[in-house]
């Protein structure tokens, strides 16, 4: 039981990092990134490939973060002249292209089998403690990321992002370079997400094309939307809720004696239902963003 809880919280922590990355782009900057998972995939694959080539985990994570930031820069450049919904479709297409490449270039990525036998980080410790240590590491990274992102959000950069989201013309008039703001927001989000992907690869000892399916992006979107776009605490609440729903399904499966098809359907349907209900009745999320209003 405690093993199960530790693993649930570790995975929740990793998803929290990805959701924080998405929140920086979608929540504060209002960018519809539907290919977010590609950044995590790059982090995971970079870790796997570098370790297979004999490098260390640190190098792998750094390479992953670097690649993801480069991809983020390219994606942001692509978005220069597109309407937001068009750009959303473009990011979806980029993520799918990367997944197709990962599935087919077996010499680099192991193809559909992926890269396995990535060492876990705390193999030296005895059995329950290696998982606990990994959980501690993940939680520490999440805490650092959440606190620093909140600091950034309340600072000048975050205010500029929110102004760009609400009133792009006004932001441009005040001398902000919108292109550069968007590019920096996407690159920062990409870096955090690639780190999460790298941790995930270590945790699962595996990196494969399944990490990059579009439904993973939609899962992270659900977490961010439910919790409250643009609010760090809200995002963490959303991650916990979705992860709790996800972890509860296996119990429901055993309790009611569902088949595995029905359990999978239940998982997907539950997420869809929560997301839809949230959009219809509480579109600002459970913990809404606090916007300072200046009395007129």
């Amino acid at each position: 039981m405690s093993d199960f809880l530790i693993s649930s919280f570790t995975i929740a922590g990793i998803y929290a990092l990805m959701a924080l990355g998405l929140n920086l782009q979608a929540g504060w900057s209002g960018l519809l990134n539907f290919g977010h998972i590609a950044f995590a995939g790059l982090g995971a694959y970079a870790t796997g490939i570098v370790i297979q080539a004999g490098g260390s985990g640190w190098t792998g994570a750094l390479v992953g973060v670097g690649l993801a930031m480069a991809l983020g820069w390219a994606v942001a450049r692509l978005g220069r002249q597109l309407g937001s919904d068009y750009w959303g479709i473009a990011t979806l297409a980029i993520a799918e292209i990367l997944r197709t490449i990962a599935t087919n270039e077996g010499w680099l990525t192991g193809g559909a089998q992926g890269i396995s036998a990535i060492p876990s980080l705390f193999d030296g410790l005895p059995r329950p403690w290696n998982a606990v240590a990994f959980l501690g590491l993940v939680l520490a990274v999440v805490a650092v990321a959440a606190l620093s992102l909140r600091r950034v959000a309340n600072g000048r950069f975050g205010r500029a992002l929110r102004l760009m989201r609400e009133e792009p013309q006004l932001a441009a008039c005040m001398g902000y370079d919108l292109k550069s703001l968007k590019t920096r927001a996407i690159m920062a989000g990409a870096a955090v997400t690639a780190l999460a992907g790298s941790l995930y690869a270590h945790y699962m000892s595996f990196a494969g094309p399944d990490y990059m399916v579009a439904s993973e992006t939609f899962l992270i979107w659900t977490m961010v939307m439910i919790g409250g776009m643009g609010n760090t605490a809200g995002v963490l609440v959303g991650v916990l809720l979705v992860q709790a729903a996800y972890s509860a399904v296996p119990f429901a499966k055993d309790f009611f004696g569902f088949g595995s098809d029905l359990a999978g359907a239940l998982r997907l349907g539950l997420i869809g239902l929560i997301l839809l209900a949230c959009l219809l009745w509480r579109s600002e999320g459970l913990v809404p963003e606090k916007l300072r209003k200046i009395p007129a």
Binding site: G30, G88, L268, L276
Partner: peptide, 25 residues
């Protein structure tokens, strides 16, 4: 439109989930 687009995502997930539950994979 952005909210509506995310809503269509949720509807898409629900359709897949219901069909997977009813018809199997």
């Amino acid at each position: 439109p952005a909210i509506a687009m995310i809503g269509s995502l949720a509807v898409a997930m629900l359709i897949v989930a219901v069909l997977q539950g009813v018809a199997g994979s």
